[in-house]
Design a protein around this nucleic acid. Structure first.
Lengths: 128, 128
DNA sequence: TATTGACTTGGAGTGAACTCCAGGTAGTAT
DNA sequence: ATACTACCTGGAGTTCACTCCAAGTCAATA
């Protein structure tokens, strides 16, 4: 699979894909004899993983560390598990914040809907 | 309330609070005769709102726009509602991504726990 | 009143994560 | 063989959201 196809598949730019490889967010991608990237299923699995993790705010640095450990083999199993658990803690924290914010937004919006119907906007002090 | 107290209350730095005010993420804060910030309950409500929204990734630019509209008065009710709805769409999108990532992390971690017990790590192609 | 420590401003600097660019090569169609 | 397009690299530039700094002011204490 060419870089063009992969970046379309995941809605990334080619620059981002090359950047991920360059810094080690994904391992080095398979190439043709000419040196052109030819993504294997495994390469694509790494990209998919990176995209998923990044979309939840897992830092690039953490993904690099995971790939680094992965390449060291089985003796890093525990270290990788610990890294994933650490990532999960962070993602869960953010998830909680997003839920809180959704509640606030829902409340605010309901107040605005009310105001747009009645012409009266009633606020508690804390609703800005 | 002094800037020190407010930034402790919300775990922000003084620089961040001043920055928020400067760029308009919150309206101008009440001051003493000497020019020192003295946050009223209303100022604090704005800070709380900003912190909540920012923690869910709502862009600074959007908060600035909201404050700008707010100060224009009742004729911007609809515009503010629309802005909040727009923010909610984005937050919900991210929320979904975070949930997806949590599932992936849970799955990966369970695989690692398994591997650490049995000594065997079994991957599908897509689990990296 | 002098010192001390917290506060003020405008503006420059930083870190993370891309994003863009110039100059060059690969591969395909004519 | 030539043109043309897609891809390559190293490195510089950009954006966002802070974060830091220098030089000055305020306010409480000795």
């Amino acid at each position: 699979m060419t870089i063009k196809e992969v970046c379309e598949k995941f809605s990334l730019t080619q620059d981002t894909l090359r950047y991920y490889e360059r810094v080690g967010v994904i391992p080095e991608v398979n190439r043709t004899k000419g040196g052109i990237r030819d993504y294997t299923d495994e390469d694509i699995a790494w990209v998919e993983n990176a995209v998923c993790m990044r979309s939840a705010g897992v830092p690039v640095e953490m993904l690099i560390e995971y790939v680094r450990l992965f390449r060291e083999g089985d003796e890093t199993l525990k270290a990788r598990r610990d890294l994933l658990v650490e990532a999960r803690v962070e993602v869960q924290k953010n998830l909680d914040k997003y839920l809180t914010t959704m509640e606030r937004l829902n409340y605010k919006i309901s107040r605005y809907e009310e105001a747009l119907k009645t012409g009266v906007l009633t606020w508690d002090v804390e609703d800005k």
